[in-house]
Design a protein around this nucleic acid. Structure first.
Lengths: 219, 219
DNA sequence: GCAAACATGTTCATTTTTTCACAACTCATT
DNA sequence: AATGAGTTGTGAAAAAATGAACATGTTTGC
């Protein structure tokens, strides 16, 4: 395997494989073929083999993939074979929900600090974390070894939150707000918005409705 | 423009364009060029022009795109120039948060029914909706003209929820649970999991760390 | 020990997506 | 009216992703 650029789509699929493999593991299934895994993930078997080949040779010819080992290999490939320490900025409804969410550690993450610029929220304790002023972010990021920032502010506060994060030397941002944010080149930003998925659905509904209409008109 | 298959990536980008355009509209900017929009969305200008060309000719040569008109055109293209009626299944933490979330109408959606199989939850009223038993789903879907189902159950209940939806003649499912669900071919499913985005970040962090290490070793 | 069945890793052809480059068109200015 | 600067829509080229095919390796059964 030679080092090469890895498609973003591959990373997304790896996340899916991981989820399906965890389910297989829970069912105490020990070995899986690319074909069986492909059926479960609704992709092409070669696709899976190729995706995995970017990172190494994890399977056994004539046998398949050992589920537990493959899970571990994918976690290493994605970088989630350890716990990443994150900070959350913006303690509104969404922020509070995330702070109270128990599922982070299982997926390789931990929220270790919460920030909000609202003086009424600063000092409040949520899920064991004291809400802090963003002005104190830089020192906290350093002291607490925070590597990822999660923005859950309202749209109009997102850029300021991003600025605080960048000034605190964080290069990785997960942005739940509706704002596009501008950061230096070396900073990675991922945008989360479940409406995008709803749009994908309405688009399909729409076009399939149009198709039905058109074939109806022709007859 | 001839009718052709439209890439999924195009749909996702349209959603981004829409968000940026709404922001421009709020700033009362009336006209935008593909180049300016491209900068804001961090994509290639021709990409934008081509994405839009799938659906029609929305711009004016020598001028650019009229923001308000383009917003409307994209909404029509995505099918969100109206309100879609959705039902939510699974009234846990996430389900409750979504039911209480005020932002649906602005994005073209409305949650008009909530289901849960827990007898202690049935009858409870959340955000003005009475939680109902999934066994009553089919009649409700018909009566209330529900077109999209949103699954917010625990992982092990997701498939059953999907079955209820399919039996109720719903062809569109947004699945927030961690389970892959199996449905007939004519049913569309979209999966929402923000950890996938975190994985994309840790992957990049990991590889850029490796690269730094490797170039350090060489010197 | 050998053959048959199985399944991976990888190459190669195909398909899809992105980017480039430019003709076509608009508008402001002279 | 003509010129020039600006911008779209689109065909062609380039790049990237996908899928099929097969050589390579493993296991089972006889």
């Amino acid at each position: 395997m030679k080092s090469k650029h890895i498609p973003r789509a591959t990373i997304q699929r790896l996340a899916v494989y991981l989820q399906v493999l965890e389910a297989l593991n829970d069912e105490e299934i020990e070995v899986v073929s690319s074909e069986a895994l492909a059926r479960a993930c609704d992709v092409n078997p070669s696709q899976i083999r190729k995706d995995l080949a970017y990172f190494g040779e994890f399977g056994v010819r004539g046998v398949g993939y050992y589920v537990a080992k493959l899970i571990q290999s994918i976690k290493v490939s994605l970088g989630t074979d350890r716990i990443w320490r994150t900070a959350l900025i913006g303690v509104g409804n969404l922020g509070r929900s995330l702070l109270r969410y128990k599922g982070f550690p299982k997926r390789g993450f931990q929220v270790v600090a919460a920030f909000d610029c609202d003086p009424f929220k600063i000092g409040e304790t949520i899920a064991g974390l004291e809400v802090m002023c963003p002005r104190r972010m830089k020192e906290n990021v350093k002291d607490m070894r925070i590597e990822i920032g999660i923005i859950t502010t309202p749209t109009d506060r997102a850029q300021r939150a991003a600025n605080y994060l960048v000034e605190s030397d964080i290069h990785c941002i997960l942005n739940f707000s509706a704002a596009r944010i501008h950061v230096p080149d070396h900073v990675f930003v991922e945008y989360v918005d479940f409406f995008h998925h709803l749009y994908a659905l309405t688009f399909k509904l729409n076009t399939s409705a149009v198709q039905r209409f058109e074939s109806f008109s022709k007859n």
